[in-house]
Computed example of a mutant assay.
Amino acid sequence: MISFVRGPVAQLSLAQAVIDVNGVGMLVHATPKTLGGLRVGEESTLTTTMIVREDSMTLYGFADADEREVFDVLLSVSGIGPRLALAVLAVLEPESIRRAVADADGKAFTKVPGVGPKVAGRIVLELKGKLVPTAGAGVPSAPAATAMAWKDQVVAAMTSLGWNEKDALKSIDAAMAAEPELADGGNVPAILRATLRWLGQDGARQSSRVR
């Protein structure tokens, strides 16, 4: 098992990074928030879990051991694979996941793309007792945490792509004003795509005005 990787970031995209580990490029899948903390050329360390199947070996990376622990426990739920477990972590913080399980708040998990009421109920049922809130952790409820988390993740993804934080926030707000249903859903990849699409359209509008 590869428990972590360390080295310069060789490549970076919205869903994965390549870490140069002593001349070997290790492809690591991660959430937009985790990837947003990386910069091409800078040395970084990611805690990892390797999923081995008959036809593949895939690395999933996390900002810390706490995220990895929650990811591994999510995989114990029937019907939850690594990509869906990673999607849960892209929307909900580890402590918010623990609290949602403890409060039997299945609705919190339906914010995750691909998780319907039945799967959300299964997560709550099967993880009861496996994930418990950290003692004394003063975190907001899972739905409130979700509402705050998606914007931070989209901003992190945009800054990793070259925008500064001020312009990223301004563009996100403008894009969500045009598509408010995306903001309500909290789907980070969809919001990011909508923001980039809005930026392209805004650039076209400014170019038209110049002419």
Rank of each mutant, 00 (worst) to 15 (best):
M1L: 05
M1P: 15
F4C: 04
R6D: 11
R6W: 10
R6L: 07
G7K: 02
P8W: 00
V9G: 04
Q11M: 02
Q11Y: 08
L12N: 03
L12M: 05
L14A: 15
A17H: 05
V18C: 12
V21Q: 13
N22M: 11
V24H: 02
G25C: 05
T31D: 09
L35V: 08
L38W: 08
E42Y: 05
E43Q: 14
E43D: 14
I51W: 10
I51S: 12
E54T: 13
D55Q: 14
A63I: 14
A65I: 07
D66G: 12
R68W: 02
V70M: 09
L75V: 10
V77Y: 02
V77N: 09
S78E: 14
I80M: 12
G81E: 08
R83C: 06
R83L: 14
V88N: 03
V88P: 15
V91D: 00
V91H: 06
L92T: 10
L92P: 05
L92I: 09
I97Q: 06
A102I: 04
D103W: 01
D103G: 08
F109V: 10
T110V: 03
T110W: 01
K111Q: 04
V112A: 01
P113T: 02
V115N: 00
V115L: 02
V119P: 06
I123M: 03
I123V: 12
L125D: 05
L127N: 07
K128F: 13
K128L: 07
K128C: 08
K128S: 15
L131T: 14
V132D: 09
A135K: 06
V139F: 04
V139A: 03
P140H: 04
P140L: 01
S141Q: 11
A142R: 02
A145F: 12
T146N: 07
M148I: 13
W150G: 01
Q153W: 08
V155D: 08
A156E: 03
M158E: 08
K166L: 08
L169H: 10
K170Q: 13
I172L: 09
I172C: 03
A175F: 14
E179I: 14
E179P: 12
G186A: 01
G186M: 07
N187T: 10
V188Y: 00
P189I: 03
A190L: 07
I191A: 00
L192N: 01
R193M: 14
A194L: 10
L196C: 09
L199H: 05
D202L: 15
R209H: 11
